[in-house]
Design a protein around this nucleic acid. Structure first.
Lengths: 244, 244
DNA sequence: TTCTAAAGGCGAACGGCGTTCGTGTCAAGT
DNA sequence: ACTTGACACGAACGCCGTTCGCCTTTAGAA
């Protein structure tokens, strides 16, 4: 919006524009924001250049003045999303708790924007918000006394774990959306299918699986995420640390 | 090939077919095998129904008599690939070593078929070969004394880790192929770019990253994979086990 | 005030994709 | 000899990302 024009009436000496030129405001930020809205509402499959252009009342060609292509747009959206991650003050004495909370928070933000985790996995992180997160967790491990190598690799593996688990979760979310079910209905349906499948296994060929169907289907996404997080943190704990 | 027709000359009482009916041999297995060949040679992006049909001298519509759609075809290819994984005799006393070797072997097979790791991550494993692998590693953990829950979640997290690391690796491979470089050239180029990027970071905003660029770029894909594997196994080691 | 040149907007088209429809063909069974 | 049913497959539908070339708008120079 033009703040001048909205404050005073159109000056009569300038001949009135035939159509409202109000929407002449395409920008990279607007495109990213629109893309994120489409992503949240309809999923990654629906996020096409055409769909975004349609939302902006224009053609797909118009977007290319502000964005190099779809890949770049996805990375911009991804970094925009990572800006939502809230970080606490660094407290190296409690690095276990902070690493866990960092992982949970990142996971939460990824899950809140359904399909973006796929982009997270595919992209090499260089955006400003990614760097902010990297500096936080890397610095946390360094200050907790880990060697630079342990801090580097630990951060790398932790990020991979969070992204990949969020991606796996987003697949279920996408399947749910495609099937038109509610979350609870989908979950019941899905667990029922897996349960039936495992119980139909021939016990002679798959004795251990067949004997433990209950344990195999007991835990849902969140418990699995927490368990893996425990494994990684317990693994980190076995690495040598300098006392600060 | 028609074994009758190749053994004796065409019987004159049956009017000669105008074209050789030799290629009437489409089958699911042939389609899967062809798809895998295209995948290995040209990558997942090039693996289209049209491309496979072309390879088989036919149109894309012909494939749908043997395969429900592209998704099912990808899962068939994936399970076909997992059939290449070689498993040792189970030896619960050495579960650490066997878990590690299982992870390495699966990772190796995934990496050998460039882009299939993407399918591995996206698919819910129900194929016969996947079940074989699951029975192996789950049984190994059970026999090593882990609780059914630890064995189930441990297997799950380990599979996720192997698949996601292989997927990350396949992205580099794909980028390399697209850029037309050789592996060594690509690697040099890539590390150089990352190195330059990190060294250009403003040290006031990213002090820890800026101070440890060497550690951040020191390790390549294989060392990272092994490090994460160490973390997971060390984490498993902290879980209680029944002495068998 | 008029002119000009650059920048952005955008209709149309290119070459791809997965999938479906309807027709054609041929082998086996009656 | 005829029917039937399974498979083959050309053509088309409706998507996709991206590019080309023309049009409009506008800011600054003249």
């Amino acid at each position: 919006m033009n703040e001048e024009a909205s404050a005073i009436p159109t000056p009569p000496w300038r001949k009135a524009r035939r159509a409202a030129p109000v929407k002449r405001q395409l920008s990279q930020e607007l495109i990213v924001e629109t893309g994120l809205r489409v992503l949240d509402a309809e999923g990654l499959d629906a996020l096409s250049m055409r769909r975004i252009a349609q939302e902006l009342d224009t053609g797909p060609a118009s977007l290319y003045a502000h964005v190099a292509g779809k890949d770049e747009l996805l990375e911009l959206i991804y970094d925009r999303v990572m800006g939502e991650v809230r970080l606490p003050e660094r407290d190296p004495a409690n690095w276990r708790r902070q690493v866990r909370e960092y992982a949970r928070e990142t996971h939460r933000v990824l899950a809140a924007h359904s399909d973006i985790a796929k982009v997270a996995l595919a992209s090499i992180p260089t955006g400003p918000n990614m760097l902010r997160l990297a500096e936080f967790v890397f610095g946390l491990l360094i200050e907790a006394g880990f060697s630079p190598r342990d801090a580097s690799l630990g951060m790398d593996r932790l990020s991979l774990y969070v992204s990949s688990d969020a991606y796996e979760g987003s697949l279920h979310y996408a399947r749910m959306r495609d099937s038109g079910m509610e979350l609870k209905e989908y979950f019941r349906h899905f667990v029922g299918q897996i349960d039936g499948f495992y119980r139909a296994l021939p016990p002679d060929r798959f004795p251990h699986l067949a004997a433990n169907v209950d344990a195999l289907i007991a835990d849902g996404g969140e418990a699995r995420f927490e368990y893996g997080l425990d494994l990684v943190i317990a693994g980190l704990e076995t690495r040598p640390r300098d006392p600060a």
